[in-house]
Design a protein around this nucleic acid. Structure first.
Length: 1046
RNA sequence: GGGCCCUUAGCUCAGGUGGUCAGAGCGCGGUCCUGAUAAGACCGAGGUCCGUGGUUCGAGUCCACGAGGGCCCA
């Protein structure tokens, strides 16, 4: 047992592969769950991916975030079961299979055979499952992949049926003839959240046509549309009753448009004949544009409607009830017929002979041309706007009347909003912003899909009496079945279509409606259906609902976040999750969205293989908060490795190197109490306690970004100040007590850092833990992920010491700047430096001044509160104190203080009080109200800033010069030791040959040189055999020979 | 057309409740330090804090309007 020196050459991807092996061999994930059996549960829901495509880098982002919080919670003592899940139904899958089969329509699927088609769908959904699991495991996303929930299983479907039955029983599931967004290629309606996925900018025709008034020859209403294909289905037009319209003469005709739009519409000159209110137009009859339908008295008249606006178009709106929600509403109210001359494939039917069989959008130009020839076209152009396209197949959607099934979500809108209040959103603005707005505008969920691969809608209808029945379980299905159910039972189409039920009312036969349900309902049902609730696992379900934590891309506000929420509120009137983290997009290096068409998609594997999964994870956590977009490229990940991982690693190498030489044993070496430790150690322990507190707070707030950044800052301090300053306290230390303190402090800092990093960088933290803890303690938990999250030791916090150390570091920085200005290298010792600091905490911490002295290589650093010889004073008001008190006059105070002569300023600075005249009155200002700054006077090598001045004594005496030479020489010898690849503790004999001054200096400091470079002897007279090196010391050639001793 | 978010150095990002000198990292040029360091320190170049107006003694920070970008809705 004991530490082994870690190698400074580290290959993180390789290290991670080794850790993966270790986890597998030790079954660590299972152990972390077992260790927390019986503890309070923390529930995470995995949003099921569709595994029919390869995972990309954005999935690594999501999975890293999904992983971090459960790991953290496990360390905090919670039991965090994590079930994987796969979304297996729906159009995405069907379209993949259609592509494979080279077909493109429902007709072709039916010809191919639904049974075989669905078999292929089922087969295809797990095509990339192995890739998903492989990537997930490689990045350390711990999830139970052995027992996932799968949405196509009979059990899952049965639970979904149970949910639908609950809704049915409460009258929340209904059938309606409604205008729905409809994909003509897929032949099915889409839900609003699916529509939301497909908006795109496009050019559509923009036409204005004449509706000739029957009883006023020569007068026409003008109507505007971007969908000429809906004109054959026109049954009416609408005006706003309150809006002003004009009858305008233009050429030899009279045109009716809204007054506010007249200029925009009637682009030439015109003459207003009359101005009327919309209501006076109501009832006018016009000539139909087409004669495809028989005349009727109510047809082709003007109606009043409040929804008409004067923001666009003409103020007169064409009504085609089959193709617009408001149109349908108007038709229903006034008993107008619905003309629907378009088939489910988006082509005209025989009702419109000229274009029968044509896809409606393709017929647009011909319809326009036809109207032009008949003199009905007023104007035609194109109109650029955003329009929805099918999110999966990219066809333009049609708004289209269909008989379809809906969930009456709008009836529960208040509950939806109330439940949303109970969710913590990250970022916060989603709650009232994107998600809240969405709920405010919620519409009924268009549930049914006229497709093949999905959860069948469990509604059966009696052929004889029309009874509709919703089946809520397999038992019920079996019981009601007219014939024995087929074995084995597959609840998918076409098998379920063949199941006929006996009518409980009339004894007739019920057949299932052909529809499936929206695939988003599947995933939204997972809190219930993953457990096959209520048919099994009641206690599991109850324990695991609602989720404490979910996390997905922000696009899911309309997707999974919504479907989970809606189903949960409909069923239980509760939110499905308490904390929800929304992730923004992963962009490429140039800030462009990654897409296949741009060819800028980054393969996660290339990054993982180069830099490791932890580096990629860490990049995602630290670069920006979850709700901000992330620019990702190899350079950014490499920087994480260089800036953070390697810095930490090198500190670890430093520790293990010397701890192993010194046989440091953290369990047996007595640890000094914190108060017994020097300021440097107390400072680090204070920083460490602060780190733990900060990281804990951040992780509690679902904010890994702040946690990661806090760790980075700590590691930076640890490496560039703590170890840098304390280096000589370890190996070969003279003061045993100090050495113990140093080892214990550094050890604790590293171990705690490893634990705090564990949820974010599970591999590197494991490696550190193994090398630091398991290496010396058999009794410790096998893995860092089995340890408890560290407690912040508040008693170690010393905010004042931390601030004082900041000052010390600042003074060191000024001192280095002064040396640099004086062109005196740091290796050249100087006799003294004076630090002028009127209001510094350092006066209370002489130890810290000592660190400055070492850092600056000045034998003596004198800290003084005042020094009129070398500095000048500047006095300003404390604006934060005096501003509120004096208001505008604070500027006069500032001016008055600015006018003080150098002598007066000095007096004020030393006395700490000033008397100035303000508007004829004497005002006295005390120390709390003054901001005293010092600046250097000319003629000294000094640097100033933030209330400090550092003045160097730049005189180099012959003694100092010789010491400098020796330091120079030692440096070169150490360099040579390294080049000769000597063991760190290899002893040598050294010979030095060179100019007399160098030789003299070495002679004078022979013992010190010998000790520094581990030489048993230092030869000055004769040259040895061994590793020989020519160096230059202050421009003079010097020959060093190192002879290793046996 | 509406909602939300963003805009700070060449790049990536920090900048509680306004307080008067705007910071870090990377990159660039130079100097230095180092037997843990592939690190690090110092100096230098590099900023209209997106713009305009307002509130205020004081605005990167608050308000209004606008511009650009992103996401979402209609």
């Amino acid at each position: 047992m004991g530490f082994s020196p870690a190698s400074p050459r580290v290959n993180f991807p390789e290290l991670e592969e080794r850790i993966l092996g270790f986890w597998a061999e030790q079954d660590v994930f299972r152990k972390t769950l077992e260790a927390r059996q019986g503890c309070p549960q923390f529930t995470f829901y995995e949003g099921p991916p569709t595994a029919n495509g390869l995972p990309g880098v954005h999935h690594v982002l999501a999975r890293a975030y999904k992983d971090a919080i459960p790991r953290y919670r496990t360390m905090r003592g919670y039991f965090v079961p994590r079930k994987a899940g796969w979304d297996t139904h729906g159009l995405p899958v069907e379209i993949e299979v259609e592509k494979e089969l080279g077909i493109n329509s429902k007709r072709e699927i039916e010809a191919y055979g639904v049974a075989e088609f669905n078999r292929r769908c089922k087969e295809s959904v797990f095509r990339y499952e192995r890739e998903w699991v492989r990537l997930s495991e490689r990045i350390g996303f711990w999830l139970d992949y052995e027992r996932p929930y799968v949405t196509y299983s009979n059990e899952y479907i049965e639970s979904v049926w149970w949910i639908l039955r609950q809704l049915w029983d409460r009258g929340l599931l209904y059938q309606g003839y409604k205008v729905v967004p409809y994909c003509p290629r897929c032949g099915t309606p889409l839900s609003s959240h699916e529509v939301a996925l497909g908006y795109r900018e496009t050019d559509d025709p923009s036409v204005i046509v004449r509706l000739r008034l029957t009883e006023q020859p020569g007068t026409s209403l003008l109507v505007w549309t971007t969908t000429p294909w809906t004109l054959p289905a026109n049954v009416a037009c609408a005006v706003h009753p309150q809006v002003a319209y004009v009858k305008a003469r233009q050429g030899d005709e009279v045109l009716v448009v809204a007054k506010d739009l007249a200029d925009a519409v009637l682009q030439g000159s015109y003459e207003v004949l009359e101005e009327v209110r919309g209501e006076s137009l109501v009832g006018l009859k016009y000539e139909p544009l087409f004669r495809f339908y028989p005349e009727g008295d109510r047809l082709w008249r003007v109606w009043a409607a409040e929804f008409v606006t004067t923001e666009e178009g003409t103020g007169v709106v064409h009504m085609a009830p089959a193709y617009g929600e408001e149109d349908m509403e108007l038709a229903r109210r006034h008993g107008l017929p619905v003309f629907h001359p378009v088939g489910p494939d988006g082509r005209y039917t025989e009702e419109v002979p000229p274009w029968a069989g044509r896809f409606v959008k393709d017929a647009d130009p011909e319809i326009v041309e036809d109207l032009r020839q008949r003199g009905l076209l007023y104007r035609a152009g194109t109109y650029r706007h955003t329009y929805p396209f099918c999110w999966r197949c990219d066809s333009p959607l049609l708004y289209y009347a269909r008989t379809s099934w809906h969930v009456a979500v709008t009836r529960c809108k208040e509950q939806l909003l109330r439940a949303n209040e109970q969710i913590r959103w990250v970022p916060e603005h989603i709650q009232r912003g994107r998600f809240g707005n969405w709920l405010e505008n919620v519409v009924d969920w268009a549930l049914s899909r006229e497709r093949y691969w999905g959860t069948p809608l469990p509604i059966w209808v009696c052929e004889a009496c029309g009874l509709q029945h919703c089946v809520g379980s397999l038992a019920e299905l079996r019981e009601m079945a007219a014939e024995p159910l087929p074995q084995p039972l597959d609840l998918h189409r076409p098998y379920v279509d063949g199941v006929r039920l006996r009518c409980p009312r009339c004894g007739g036969i019920l057949r299932r409606v052909p529809d499936l349900i929206d695939v988003w309902f599947d995933s939204g049902a997972m809190p219930v259906a993953q457990w096959h609730y209520p048919f099994e696992n009641q206690e599991w379900f109850e324990r695991s609902f609602p989720a404490d934590y979910i996390c997905e891309g922000i696009d899911q506000t309309r997707g999974w976040f919504y479907s989970l929420h809606a189903i949960s509120v409909l069923l239980f009137d509760r939110p499905a999750y308490r904390n929800c983290v929304c992730l923004e997009l992963v962009l490429d290096e140039h800030g462009e969205k990654m897409s296949k068409s741009r060819g800028n998609v980054l393969d996660p594997w290339s990054l993982i293989q180069r830099f490791g999964a932890d580096a990629l994870r860490w990049f995602f956590f630290s670069v920006s908060p979850p709700g901000m977009p992330k620019r990702l490229g190899p350079a950014a990940v490499e920087e994480v490795v260089r800036r953070f991982f390697l810095t930490l690693w090198n500190t670890y190498v430093f520790f293990t190197t010397y701890a192993s030489l010194d046989r440091f044993d953290p369990l047996r070496w007595p640890a000094p109490t914190v108060n017994e430790r020097p300021a440097l150690d107390r400072w680090l322990l204070s920083r460490l306690a602060g780190l733990v507190a900060e990281a804990t707070e951040a992780m509690e707030a679902y904010n890994p970004t702040d946690a990661a950044r806090a760790v980075e800052r700590f590691v930076e301090d640890l490496s560039t100040w703590y170890v840098r300053r304390g280096r000589r306290r370890y190996w070969k230390a003279r003061d045993v007590q100090d050495q113990r303190s140093a080892y214990h402090t550094l050890y604790e800092a590293l171990v705690t850092t490893a634990k705090v990093m564990a949820p974010l960088a599970p591999f590197l933290s494991e490696e550190l833990y193994q090398g630091l803890v398991r290496a010396v303690d058999d009794g410790a938990p096998v893995s860092v992920h089995l340890t408890d999250w560290p407690q912040a030791r508040e008693q170690d916090r010393d905010v004042e010491l931390e601030r004082a150390m900041e000052e010390a570091r600042w003074v060191a920085s000024l001192g280095r700047a002064a040396r640099s200005r004086a062109r005196i290298r740091v290796r050249q010792p100087l006799a003294s430096a004076v630090v002028v600091a009127p209001q510094s905490l350092l006066h209370r911490y002489p130890e810290l001044v000592e660190y400055v002295s070492e850092e600056l290589n000045c034998k003596r650093v004198e800290l003084v509160g005042q020094d009129s010889a070398r500095v000048e004073y500047e006095v300003r008001p404390r604006f934060d104190v005096l501003g509120p008190r004096y208001g505008p006059k604070v500027q006069e105070l500032a001016a008055a203080l600015d006018r003080l002569s150098p002598a007066e300023a000095r007096r004020v600075a030393l006395e700490g009080r000033a008397v100035v005249e303000l508007a004829g009155e004497q005002v006295e200002l005390g120390p709390e109200e003054l901001d005293v700054r010092v600046r250097q006077r000319e003629g000294f090598v000094a640097e100033a800033g933030r209330g400090f001045v550092v003045v160097l004594d730049t005189r180099i005496t012959p003694e100092l010069r010789r010491e400098g030479l020796v330091r120079e020489l030692v440096h070169h010898v150490q360099q040579a030791r390294r080049e000769a690849e000597l063991r760190v503790d290899q002893r040598i004999v050294l010979s030095v040959a060179g100019p007399a001054e160098v030789v003299e200096a070495v002679r004078e400091h022979r013992a010190a040189v010998a000790e520094e470079v581990l030489a048993d002897r230092v030869e000055l007279a004769r040259e040895l055999e061994g590793f020989r090196r020519e160096v230059s010391i202050l421009g003079e050639p010097v020959t060093l020979v190192l002879q290793p001793l046996p």
